[in-house]
């Protein structure tokens, strides 16, 4: 960044709270700025933008633009796009960083193609080399990774969750907060979110659970998931599933773990009758410990597991659950 233009990070807010990816984006911004100069600026939109701006500064942002708006608590595609365009115009960054989230996936391409910037999405690694952006992302459902390069004047990237570690928040970090003057042009708003339907999660949310027990195609139907529910209850965890299970209608798509679906990072991930296709591993390989039960000893899942049993789940699982209960005294 010979021109010291710095990095602009989208400080995404969801359900009233700053997202982890916003803070991870700031950490990436600092890495990129560290490679070649410039400062890290963030933009935060919503009714509590000022408070979240302070959080972003505590996480390393050197400057934060705020756009306070009660109407923009939830994502509104065209309105957010207008605010982001104004932020880019004001900050004049070399790189724009967003998270690979529901919002980021929609917003990043719209922003990039409007600005004619380069666009690299779902990145697990991003560096700048003499102004050239080098981004690594999983392709072919996670079977491979591609390294993409661009020497465009402006770059946009979306970052995969947990690819970069956020800085420990530190209230003594200093930064500037500036209200962004970006009047929304209502006549240019065509795409509108008219209703948000949040799924009422029973028990622990899959994304937050420290233990996840997942079942796959090998279950052959929805019934065996009752056993997983029981196991999850004993371990204080949540139940997940592979895409095949959800596409077959055995469980709702809200249970889906994978590239399409949820990304989980529990301490313990127990995979039963899951072969471990890359598509699935993309959603769970960040787990601290993977334990698998599968009848096929050549299953891909064993390659990423710490412990495993080669056997039929019909025999292994009930005995496993009984012993877990005994050990947990429940």
């Amino acid at each position: 960044m010979a021109d010291n233009r710095g990095v602009l990070v989208f400080g995404e807010v969801k359900d009233g709270a700053l997202t982890g990816l916003a803070r991870e984006g700031v950490a990436l911004g600092l890495q990129l700025a560290g490679e070649a100069g410039g400062q890290v600026t963030a933009i935060v939109i919503g009714p509590d933008a000022e408070a979240q701006a302070k959080e972003l500064i505590a996480s390393g942002a050197q400057k934060v633009y705020t756009f306070e708006s009660a109407d923009l608590a939830d994502y509104q595609p065209d309105a957010y796009l207008q605010v982001l365009l104004k932020a880019v115009e004001t900050a004049n960054p070399k790189v724009i960083v967003l998270g690979q989230t529901d919002t980021g996936k929609d917003l990043a391409p719209k922003l990039a193609f409007r600005l004619k910037s380069s666009l690299s999405m779902d990145c697990v690694d991003v560096t700048l080399e003499d102004g050239k952006l080098v981004a690594t992302k999983p392709v072919y459902g996670g079977n491979a990774q591609g390294i993409y390069e661009s020497d465009a004047d402006l770059h946009a990237v979306t970052l995969r969750a947990k690819a970069v570690e956020a800085l420990e928040p530190d209230g003594s970090r200093l930064g500037e907060i500036v209200a962004l003057d970006a009047p929304i042009d209502e006549s240019a708003v065509r795409v509108r979110v008219v209703e948000v339907k949040r799924q009422e999660a029973e028990g622990i949310r899959l994304e937050d659970a420290s233990v996840v027990v997942s079942g796959g195609r090998g279950f052959g139907g929805p019934e065996p998931f009752e056993q997983l529910e029981e196991l999850a209850k004993v371990l204080g965890g949540a139940v997940g599933a592979s895409r095949a299970v959800c596409d077959a209608g055995w469980l709702d798509h809200s249970y889906q773990v994978g590239l399409t679906g949820k990304t989980v990072t529990p301490d313990l991930y127990i995979a039963v009758a899951i072969s471990g296709a890359s598509q699935h591993m993309a959603g769970c390989s960040g787990s601290k410990n993977i334990v698998s039960i599968n009848k096929d000893k050549d299953s891909n899942i064993f390659k990423e597991s710490r412990f495993g049993v080669v056997g039929s789940w019909e025999e292994v699982l009930p005995a496993f659950i009984e012993m877990v209960k005994e050990l947990r005294g429940s």
Binding site: V291, F302, F307, V309, E315, V316, P318, F320, V324
Partner: peptide, 22 residues
């Protein structure tokens, strides 16, 4: 990483041993 495969006298036994291992 390397996977430690837990074996038992039969599948059910391997399931119990897996719980003990964890």
């Amino acid at each position: 990483g390397e996977c430690e495969l837990i074996e038992g006298e039969n599948d059910a036994d391997a399931g119990r041993k897996l719980a003990l291992k964890l």
